[in-house]
Design a protein around this nucleic acid. Sequence first.
RNA 1: GGGAACGUAGCUCAAUUAGGCAGAGCAAGUGACUCUUAAUCACUCGGUUGUGGGUUCGAUUCCCACCGUUCUCACCA
Length: 573
Amino acid sequence: MAGNQSPDNQPNKSNLEEIRATRIDKIGQIKELGLNPYTYKWEISHHAQELQEKYANLASGEEVADTVSIAGRIIARRVFGKLAFFELQDETGKIQLYLEKKKINNNMSDLVGAFNHLKKLSDTGDILGVKGSLKRTEKGELSVYVSEYAILTKSLLPLPDKWHGLTDTEKRYRQRYVDLIVNPQVRQTFRYRAQITAGIRRYLETRDFLEIETPVLQSEAGGAEARPFVTYHNTLEMDLYLRIATELHLKRLIVGGFEKVFELGRIFRNEGISTRHNPEFTSIEVYQAYADYNDMMVLTENLISTVTQEVVGTTKVNYQGTEIDLTPPWRRVTMHEIVKDATGIDFAQFDDFATAKSAAQDAGIEIPEDCQTIGKLLNEAFEQKVEENLIQPTFIIDYPLEISPLAKPHRSKPGLVERFELFVVGRETANSFSELTDPLDQRARLEAQAAKKAAGDVEANDVDEDFLAALEYGMPPTAGLGIGIDRLVMLLTDAPSIRDVIAFPLLKSQSVAIKSFDYDSQQEILKIEFKNGSIYKYFDVPESIYEELKVAPSVGKYFNSKIRDKFGCDREI
RNA sequence: GGGAACGUAGCUCAAUUAGGCAGAGCAAGUGACUCUUAAUCACUCGGUUGUGGGUUCGAUUCCCACCGUUCUCACCA
């Protein structure tokens, strides 16, 4: 019974492959016992957190007869001869399992040696279901006093260090599932994120806003200045763009007669990646007919502070060591005023660009090539001297017209539009305007954009004629609002990087490691052996490709660009 | 795209200053153990030091290229 076999059957190694092999061997042993290592169902009566709360007052050493059934992942094992303590983690938290040989064997008489099988065949990482009563151990740890168990899913790969966890940033992002298993605060971040988006939707829906989905694939990518992703529809034989904003379609819905619409969804911009930018990100755009940007400021304050109160429990949040007070009302200041405060320059006083430019230069503002109007100069001054200092929530209002092609001219300030942006912790977090409803004015502005595109500006758009047609049917006075959801979630979850609030952020694909390759010139087959041991055959590969591969400075880079996904292939091993 | 830093066992980290046998803890394996909770004790296994070159008697360490990550600048939200 002790099973002391000859020493030749266990290689006794412990690198990853051997750990995996050992666990696969345990799968066989589980099956030999007539059990399934990948079961179908487990009836759960409670979650860990629920039990911790319900039995918080159970005294050390006490037991209660209540039977419970829970399931989760084994994250720690402390095994004695006839007794074992496991830590089980479910979505809500952790609870200890008190596993006693006598009790388990008595209750699981159908499985001879049930306790020993658990000891031998389970590993940290396995998904386990248990039934039992509640007991607080003599040392004070609330535990499920297990009478019955089942290994629900056998895990083949070892978990990261139980004490240090997983800290390697790259692995955390690439293998988020592991990150989620071992870092409870990461689960909490995504729980918050879900609550925030749900809270936003609830807030708007109770105020009679309708969420209407608009196309992600568009023949014109408009509504913002950004470089789009391009894709191709085979049957229609046309290029399509992934949307860079939801604006132009939501406005069509306003034309159609809806008075309050919004869409919370994914936007795609083919631009740089940073701690504040991901190529796909989530925005919400809200449009309300018969309202203006003043109404949107109130909506923004109330929406964000309400959701923050609901999710975080307060409207004062700590972001990277700074307390951010989201209690409304928020500071409102015009762009002209705040730039004047920061630089001493009143850009409203200038009549000609040259004077304004020299004043700006004197104030230490760097002026890029394409900055050739007073409005753009003002915006440069704002971005360089003001933006990063706007820590507490601040509405910057009344923007220059030339940087706001979809906004309505200001009702009393020439050259400006009725627009605001919300800044928190130095970041643009929301953008809103009284929407431009004049189709002729809109056409002129879009045509100016199209001219920029024709001149080579990759962020400018062509004229969306259908959108202009919609405006020509007549759009009621409307205010629009866009909020960057990822940045809002960062703020509310104290996340330093946007990647911390995106479950699966975009990373570069890891390079293929090629061990060797050879070529059959008769059949035009290129055979490539990878370092992970797999061998692929690529078909119909011209000899020239093979010759180039041989002399390529980086085999992996050449493979990625010229061979991978370009030729048909079969996996041999 | 530019700049800086980093990449060592499944995980967390040493060794690099000044080139000289790559080392721990956790995890894993075997055995003991009925109150542990980073369990303990004994024994054991685990490495092409990101990849490819170069310098050298000798490279984890120095040099070059490449791959990837992080931060940052640019672009942008």
